[in-house]
Design a protein around this nucleic acid. Structure first.
Lengths: 330, 330
DNA sequence: CAAGTTTACTCAAGCGCTTGAGTAAAATTA
DNA sequence: TAATTTTACTCAAGCGCTTGAGTAAACTTG
């Protein structure tokens, strides 16, 4: 059904290799012949069989992207960044959802390897690098994106939330608050640690004592934010500024505050985290820390392609910083 | 570096074909030999080269998914549905972002075809089916998801917003409203048409006259909703119920209502569209029409795989219905 | 126990493309 | 015009796997 180089060769009356060279714009083909071959190819809508091509060339122009969940606001933005850069360079991306499941991650790794992808990006998720090493992938182009780097050093791109959290906290301090509450997810997470660190650093810079009671760990959810706020209100002297270090938590906090009859920012100032459609919909518009998600994807892809093409890589670990967007909630 | 069947054959001392059959669990291999082969394969972490495998078998277990933008809330959910079903059946998915650009769509189509994907799903977006036909893909497994079916009949799965809009309108009618405003995006869109139709049908069912003034077309955005509300308020007798047929528009409407000092639902009842993190964050929780996005993906994938495996396909066009979720805004 | 059947394997071609080496003719040079 | 270079091509092997056909040995059966 589909036409092959062999067919074209027959039609034109040349050898297969000539057809190959003509179609791939290589030299060694006469003008006339080339024209004829291209004409026939076009007429028959010839599409080279990539499987054969890749097999012969021993290379592909596909990269794999492993992430927890493409349906997540955060990851889908990053994925888009990866795809845009990759396709701009002639590469295609295969996205695999691991659901943070190590077994799945390993399966996909194998599958991708099996398919001879040119390289892989591990975005978020939890596969210990150990396993990557075990799987003998160290000689394989790999980039870690927004994932904690462990014992084995691998090229990575990460967003440092510390700076963002620092800026957020400083902003509230600038507004005259000295008792600032911090709402975080479970404290075993890397993200929570970073954000906490930024918060602490900001306090330290101003010689303000760190008050354990003002830092509350809940789930990374709206409910978590809601409950966190209620807990804060039970303190003897409730804080009048809250840094909710997650967009959903921020949404929950805002909800709880309004329900409590308080006004933002007059009664209580709020800073959120991430700038997605969620924070954009909240009333009032939230001052928030924004992470360069799309850029994270782009940079990771770029790093990977550099790796693949063995261009020089400047730094092993690239750090992107989160920024503060100031709006009406503070 | 990577081990091949040939290597294994040499190590074990059998022919390559025996190795192939052993690894693929086919008969014709002695127990002992098979065990030995598998042992060697495992020990060396053998991964069959899919390129070669697919080339030899003349088939792949990869499908292509073309959609406008994976970073969109709607599409990423659908994509996840596609991926989950596909992987459960041993297929992998390649996602291509077309940005609703026909040229890109065609490029991706060709690329996917070149890679011998087993089939494709066209999700949303605008390539006229004509071009699909031109590209000679009619004999190719293709499923259209949530895309208007044109002259050429192709297997499709769509979500009928008509029913959802009907239910939403009826719900407001049930609540005693007889002047219900409808906020829509540009009226040339298929979505807008469907939702309008559902609205009209609901009115007709109750013998309520259709009032052109109550139907406002703006952009599918928060701003659109906001402006739409202001326009409605300028009517002589402003409506006390609004069906904002888009989540962002709904968010805008809610914002405008609150800013105007009105209360939801006491002063004005609101029904939104789509049930994503956006509607979940709005206060009060919105009564909304929810589209089965994940299911749309699943069903499309299922239809495609049936097509690929040439199982019987019941209906050419499968229609999923949107549902109404009743919450506090009405 | 001869004839037929099954089992466990090997052979070799083929999937569609690439690419280094080979070759004859045309073009250049001295 | 003979020697050299260049051009335009062909040949054939190879990428790693699959698979139908072939074969010798082991097993069944009456």
């Amino acid at each position: 059904m589909t036409i092959t180089m062999k067919d074209i060769a027959e039609i034109v009356g040349v050898s297969e290799s000539t057809v190959s060279r003509a179609i791939n714009n290589k030299e060694g083909v006469g003008q006339e012949t080339r024209k004829e071959i291209l004409k026939v190819a076009k007429k028959n809508n010839f599409q080279p069989n990539r499987l054969a091509q890749n097999l012969a060339k021993q290379e592909t122009n596909v990269i794999g992207l492993l992430l927890p969940d493409i349906a997540s606001l955060f990851y889908s933005d990053v994925a888009r960044g990866v795809q845009d850069y990759a396709t701009s360079q002639g590469y295609q991306v295969i996205v695999c959802n691991t659901d943070d499941d190590k077994e799945q991650e390993v399966n996909y790794m194998n599958w991708l390897q099996s398919n001879k992808v040119a390289g892989m990006i591990f975005l978020g998720g939890g596969l210990v690098n150990n396993q990557i090493v075990k799987l003998g992938l160290t000689d394989y182009p790999i980039v870690l994106a927004n994932r904690l780097v462990e014992e084995v050093p691998l090229p990575s791109v990460i967003i440092d939330d510390t700076i963002g959290a620092l800026k957020a906290t400083e902003h509230l301090l600038d507004k005259g608050h000295d008792r600032i509450a911090l709402l975080l997810g479970p404290n075993n997470s890397w993200q929570a640690q970073n954000r906490l660190q930024g918060y602490k650093r900001a306090l330290k810079n101003r010689d303000i004592e760190y008050d354990q009671d003002l830092v509350i760990h809940k789930s990374w959810s709206r409910e978590g934010g809601y409950q966190g706020f209620l807990e804060l209100m039970e303190l003897e002297e409730p804080p009048r500024a809250i840094f909710a270090a997650d967009e959903l938590m921020a949404a929950g906090v805002v909800e709880a505050i309004k329900l409590g009859g308080y006004f933002i920012p007059q009664d209580i100032a709020v800073v959120g985290f991430d700038d997605t459609v969620v924070t954009s919909v909240i009333d009032p518009p939230l001052t928030t820390v924004t992470r360069p998600m799309y850029e994270l994807g782009e940079r990771s892809a770029k790093k990977l392609l550099n790796l693949i093409n063995e261009e020089e890589i400047k730094e092993e670990i690239e750090i992107l910083e989160s920024e503060l967007i100031i709006r009406e909630s503070t």
